[in-house]
């Protein structure tokens, strides 16, 4: 009875030591180490099953949500028709402006704007399996030209950035994750502060904005390419939803409602170029 238990204890000590070794390797960091390789292999093993489960379960979920929405469909149809007409008119105007813009950009020798960059569309196949980080696995990887640090967007705005790439999948850290800091501006081409997430369902924080700045409720917030940001400038992040901060604090405490709805993320686009900052070696 005693021997097997002693062997159990030895096994415990061996695997605890192994865990500590993994933590040490992680802290020493660096790209392309044995841990990075192990992560890629794990991802490659789990991803096909995640794809399968998502392919089976998503239509079921969509079916139930469409039944729930049935009553609103007629009303929504009418509203959407109006919107289509309005948008068509705006598109015609925008085409003219885009032509003019392109000519001016060429004249001034500016970087390519994010909305004309090459992009690949990817499906979200899984979420991070924990409660303390927010990320998604998408169905495109290195074989499709996806690289680390590329910006991920939807039609509404910024989703996050690629932090890990496999041949066929990539891991995207979401804007709502507290670990992702994004240089932000109100639209002028300078840095205003840094946006970071507070988890799902909570507004983002816009930090380090001095009270001398002119910020009002409802202001649109965009990515900035200053301060070695990896993001191309001008991607919508959201709008200012609250401004606070006590009298002694030299900075505002600003909340930003994200432009993207992170609860219904199905398809995203990866911009196949990183912002100007990354070229400087950030």
């Amino acid at each position: 009875m005693y021997r097997p238990r002693r062997r159990g204890r030895l096994l415990l000590l061996a695997f605890l030591a192994l865990s500590v070794l993994v933590i040490t390797l992680d802290f020493r960091g660096g790209d392309g180490g044995p841990l990075e390789r192990a992560k890629e292999i794990t991802q490659a093993i789990v991803a096909p099953i995640q794809r399968g489960v998502t392919a089976i379960t998503r239509p079921v979920g969509n079916f139930f949500s469409s039944i729930a929405d049935l009553a609103n469909l007629r009303e929504e149809n009418g509203r959407l028709r109006n919107e289509v007409e309005e948008l068509t008119r705006e598109i015609n105007q925008a085409r003219e402006l885009a032509k003019e813009n392109a000519e001016l950009r060429e004249y001034l020798d500016l970087d390519e704007p994010w909305y004309t960059m090459d992009a690949v569309t990817a499906q979200v196949i899984a979420d991070a399996p924990g409660n303390y980080s927010w990320a998604v696995t998408i169905s495109r990887g290195a074989d499709d030209g996806v690289e680390t640090d590329m910006a991920v967007i939807t039609a509404q705005g910024l989703v996050g950035k690629v932090i890990n790439v496999n041949a066929d999948e990539a891991l995207v850290l979401l804007l709502i994750d507290p670990q992702l800091g994004v240089g932000a501006t109100t639209g002028e081409r300078r840095l205003l502060g840094t946006v970071s997430g507070n988890g799902e369902g909570v507004d983002l924080s816009l930090n380090y904005v001095s009270k001398s700045e002119d910020v009002v409720l409802g202001d649109n917030i965009y990515t900035s390419n200053r301060n070695r940001s990896v993001f191309p400038p001008g991607i919508p992040i959201g709008h200012v939803s609250a401004i606070g901060g006590d009298a002694r604090d030299p900075n505002y405490q600003i909340s930003v409602r994200p432009a993207v709805d992170f609860t219904t993320l199905n398809f995203v686009q990866v911009l196949l170029e990183t912002g100007s900052g990354s070229k400087e070696g950030s």
Binding site: L18, I23, L35, A38, T42, A128, S133, A135, I163
Partner: peptide, 29 residues
């Protein structure tokens, strides 16, 4: 306990590998 140790380690490691930027090895430990 012996299966518990080995399975616990690998399960924790898989979870660590799939979580972005958390301390890898913490769940394994």
């Amino acid at each position: 306990e012996r299966v518990g140790v080995v399975v616990g380690f690998f399960a924790g490691l898989i979870q660590d590998f799939l979580l972005p930027q958390s301390v890898t090895g913490l769940t394994a430990l």
